[in-house]
Design a protein around this nucleic acid. Structure first.
Length: 410
RNA sequence: GGGCGGUUACCCAAGUGGCCAAAGGGGGCUGACUGUAAAUCAGCUGGCGUUGCCUUCGGCGGUUCGAAUCCGUCACCGCCCA
């Protein structure tokens, strides 16, 4: 058995970045974590720490990685990381971060999405050391009797106090009965996994605490709940989520990833440095100071961030080409190296080509873009939407700043 | 089961007979500028054969010269009562 780091050092690492919204709660959780670590050191039994992810879409994005990286820290310290795929809870739909009920998914959709989750997760976690569990394994076997038993531990008021429910309640928007079960079911996960620690975003606190309650009711030691701050999406304000379309997927191409990071508002940069990079707190503090005193150029800092994020998920070797592509297209306004080709079948107008190739979704949009000086052919501005496109040699059609097509004569 | 209120474009939301392809906001797109796809400013954001025409305001059917707006009906949602 490997030698573990001293307890205090472990705590320093594990509590870093943890935000529980309430200092008292944080102190309590830290104290409980310490106890568990001491216990673990004595018995040699690793701490069991888990985080659940509902497979509501096929791809994981940077928002998911905040807790995954925390999970990895536990793993690196020799503890047992459990990656739970919410194959059952995804069917219910977590109301935590929603002002509305989530659309419910079918079991098949969920299983399909779950397939890609583990592959992507192992870009961060060590797959040899990770326990992967699917929560339908135990949740779908629950009896009505057990469900009622668990439900009797919670009051409707406790749910209604939650911000998202109270807002909807006041607005007269529907709050569905099944949404109340989400927290209860997630809490049951904790009991089945015999979890010592559960991780989640700050919006998950209620659900993590539900786990504690259920564990206690079943005579288990309650888990430590550790929550991490929310990662904002590419819009710079809203929480990163697939449904709002403001996400950076961890499986995206290096160019796409680099570009999306560069499109972040400056104000969101530090949030990213803290939550999704490998920089140390000291390095991050230095960057923040440099920006504050205008010693560092925000653009250069953001490029550093983009390089780091691409490096984590796509490897160091992907960084240079991605950055070169970005500089080329957006700083030097050159055409990218790789442009999809499209062969023009017959003589049509420029609008025909834009629509047929799928560059735009309607002829009106194509005309609009031309009118707004957004369309160029081999660098020349096009101003006549009805111009027939007659090409003898390959030519590059550019729409806006980032849509390119290499037109090939037939 | 009864009463009342609601359903508008990608999302939120105004509009209660013609001036409505429909205010405003969000999001998205384009341009200028630049430090990048940041910030700021400006424009665009149903479709098409684009000085005009066509299709939209939950569905269907009416009234009217004319309906997102009025009536009937069906569906769905919320609230109150049971």
């Amino acid at each position: 058995m490997s030698q573990r780091k001293p307890i205090e050092e472990q705590i320093a690492i594990l509590m870093q970045g943890v935000e529980l919204g309430d200092e008292k709660l944080k102190e309590a959780m830290q104290a409980e974590l310490k106890e568990k670590l001491i216990q673990s050191a004595k018995t040699g039994e690793p701490i069991r720490v888990y985080c659940g992810y509902d497979p509501t879409s096929p791809d994981l994005h940077l928002g998911h990685t905040v807790t995954m990286r925390k999970l990895k820290q536990f793993q690196d310290l020799g503890h047992q990381a459990i990656f739970v795929i919410g194959t059952f809870t995804a069917l219910v739909g977590d109301p935590s971060d929603k002002d509305k009920a989530r659309p419910r998914l079918s079991h098949d959709q969920v299983m399909e999405n779950a397939k890609t989750y583990t592959d992507q997760a192992f870009k961060i976690l060590d797959n040899e050391k990770t326990e992967v569990r699917y929560n339908h394994e135990w949740l779908s076997d629950l009896s009505m009797e057990q469900i009622i038993e668990m439900a009797s531990l919670f009051t409707v008021q406790q749910f209604l106090v939650r911000d998202n429910f109270s807002k909807r309640f006041e607005k007269g928007d529907p709050i569905w009965l099944h949404e109340f079960f989400y927290g209860v079911l997630q809490g049951y996960d904790a009991t089945m996994l015999k979890a010592d620690v559960q991780l989640g975003g700050t919006e998950q606190l209620f659900n993590l605490l539900a786990g504690r309650k259920l564990q206690e009711a079943m005579g288990l030691r309650p888990q430590v709940a550790l929550t991490t701050p929310v990662l904002v999406g590419t819009d710079g304000h809203m929480r990163m989520a697939k449904s709002t379309g403001n996400y950076i997927g961890i499986d995206e191409t290096p160019e796409e990833m680099y570009g999306k990071v560069m499109s972040l508002p400056d104000s969101a940069m530090m949030n990213y440095f803290r939550l999704v990079t490998r920089f140390s707190p000291d390095e991050i503090a230095e960057i923040e100071l440099g920006l504050g005193e205008s010693k560092l150029h925000p653009r250069d800092v953001k490029m550093r961030l983009a390089r780091e994020i691409v490096a984590i998920y796509q490897g160091d070797e992907a960084v240079e080409p991605a950055e070169a592509a970005f500089r080329r297209v957006f700083q030097e306004h050159e055409d990218p190296e790789e442009i999809p080709e499209y062969s023009i079948s017959s003589a049509g107008t420029i609008v025909d080509v834009m629509v047929d190739s799928g560059l735009v979704s309607s002829r009106s949009e194509a005309r609009r873009l031309i009118k707004q000086n957004g369309v160029r052919l081999d660098g020349d501005l096009l101003d006549d939407a009805n111009m027939a496109l007659d090409i003898k040699q390959p030519a590059i059609l550019k729409v806006g700043k980032r849509r390119f097509l290499r037109l090939m004569p037939e």
